[in-house]
Amino acid sequence: MDKGVIYFPSKPSILAAGVVVGPLEKRSVFVQNFDLVYDDELADQKTNEQGHQIMIEEAAQIALQKKKLTKDSLDFFIGGDLVNQMTPTNFAAATIASPFIGMYSACATSTSSVIIASLLTELGGSQYALAGAASHHNAIERQFRYPVDYGGQKPATAQWTVTAAGYALIGKHQEGEPCIEAATIGKVADFQQSDPFHMGAAMAPAAFSTIQQHLKGRGQTVQDYDVIMTGDLGKVGLPILKEMLRQAGLTTKQLETVRDGGAEYYGDNPLFLAGASGAGCSASVFFSEILAELKSGRMKRVLLVATGALLSPLSVQQNQSIPTVAHAIEVTMK
């Protein structure tokens, strides 16, 4: 059997989603599908981390409001971020006050959270569960790299951590809503990449392995999908993934199906170098743009493959390589 591939017979639905972003994300090509854009990256709080927490709470609140629910009707809250010990999500979970498990899959947390929420729903243990992820540029940069105002030169392969929070409301199957048919929990890939300013190269093999695993396990080909979208490989990582898929036998036509949220996020703006990254990147693209495409019927079946680099500042300084992982969810619309 193909390990990691999960099929959901009851087809849990994505009932609604909330996506909030920071001020720079106004320039995203996906901006018209975001629910709320903050003008202040601190969200009127004192610290970046508190602003981060407020954005998570707001995204959760918006998702619930769309179905006219309050947080009391929530059975589970599952999510994470990239700050040490995920304190912003933990504090947000304290506000939301529903049963909570923190998820850390780095930037692949958006889909790993949805997988857990779908499993809880499939088991019959959950009526409504919120699943998602978030990141905050300033809070993450200072932790993983340098102080925000430090004048270091970033290479063209570097990506820009987005300030965004995206949460999806997962519930029992409902007609007329996109539903989660299957998922693949990815294996950790380590191809001995060690450049923390070149995440795309580190993560592409993880995306490749998870996509192959999912198609094989489900007996599908790329043609079965309207789009296969990775999370944040960026403008350099995406061509690497495509080349790996091409070598595995995909045609140029088939490769057009493969897109990447991080590569498209800020359009062609050169200031953002190789594009967007961060746990909030895949969450804010998948739960806004892609859900809208599914709901409108323009897309019928998509594979969402969030990609995460499982490094820490410590592991980089100790000269270790960057292990990466990708988790996929197959979302369909009747």
């Binding site: 290479p155 001995q192 093999p205 350099v236 690497i240 080349e243």
Partner: peptide, 14 residues
């Protein structure tokens, strides 16, 4: 393998 991959990514990276 990681060695072939290194070659591939170097080729495709700016």
């Amino acid at each position: 393998n990681p060695k072939d991959y290194e070659q591939l990514q170097t080729q495709l990276s700016p």
